[in-house]
């Protein structure tokens, strides 16, 4: 569950990236976050992952108030989130299995747990036969599936996907979105940040549009009615 109340973020150089956003996302929801470049989307994601702290207002992520929790608690807050990036951010030297297992290892999972959970998640994203491949041996869509598997592996309450289809062709983009929708159907809250109007409009989901650091529309009609450029 995400709850933002009158959140502002002003950078040290005086730039106001977020100017007073309030929004609420319930557990299990699927939400598209749209907006042009420089609208404040990236800052908003960083506020949700506690890479940045709000200047004013409250950011509540899965019951963690990021403005008030101790620094030592931030890793535990992040374990309730899975983050997917446009550029996949896979470790080139590790194969598919190890890239996914890595996310379990860093939070102290046992090898037994890793060996049991990783194949299950790789099967969920359709990569069960490619677990020994290196990232460079995979297509863009497959690499993004590895990133999704890594985001899913620790069973987060919510996944934040930052332009997950930005580097993919339309067919692969659709596959990835359908995969994210399937994961959402299993109970994981999903926030997808995207520019792709056609893709958003194929799904009947909630769409939050932001511009100039403010929410300018928030609709359940599943229609991307905001002109980005």
């Amino acid at each position: 569950m995400i709850d933002l109340r009158n959140v502002t973020k002003t950078y040290d150089n005086g730039a106001k990236a977020v100017k007073g956003i309030s929004l609420h996302i319930e557990d299990g929801e699927f939400v598209f976050l749209v907006g042009p470049s420089g609208s404040g989307k990236s800052t908003l994601i960083k506020l949700l992952t506690a890479e940045l702290l709000p200047t004013t207002g409250m950011v509540l992520v899965n019951n963690f108030n990021t403005g008030k929790i101790k620094r030592s608690q931030i890793p535990y807050m992040r374990r309730t989130l899975g983050v997917i990036f446009q550029d996949f951010r896979l470790i080139e030297k590790k194969n598919v299995f190890d890239n996914v297992a890595f996310a379990m290892r860093v939070i102290g999972a046992s090898e037994k747990e890793i060996k049991s959970r990783v194949p299950y998640v790789l099967e969920l994203v359709g990569l069960e036969n490619k677990s020994h491949r290196l990232p460079e041996e995979l297509s863009g869509g497959e690499q993004q599936r590895v990133a999704i598997a890594r985001a899913l592996i620790n069973n987060p309450q919510m996944i934040i996907a930052d332009e997950p289809t930005g580097n993919l062709d339309p067919a692969r983009s659709l596959e990835i979105m359908m995969l994210l929708e399937r994961i959402n159907a299993l109970g994981t809250t999903m926030m997808v940040v995207t520019h792709e109007k056609a893709l958003v409009n194929r799904f009947s989901k909630r769409v939050i549009a932001i511009d100039d650091g403010l929410v300018i529309s928030d609709g359940m009609d599943g229609y991307y009615n905001y002109e980005t450029e």
Partner: peptide, 17 residues
């Protein structure tokens, strides 16, 4: 650095990193 960024993102503690 990329690996460390990923570690932080998936919730590795500073001690672990």
């Amino acid at each position: 650095r990329e690996e460390i960024a990923i570690m932080r993102m998936v919730g590795a503690t500073n001690r672990f990193i």
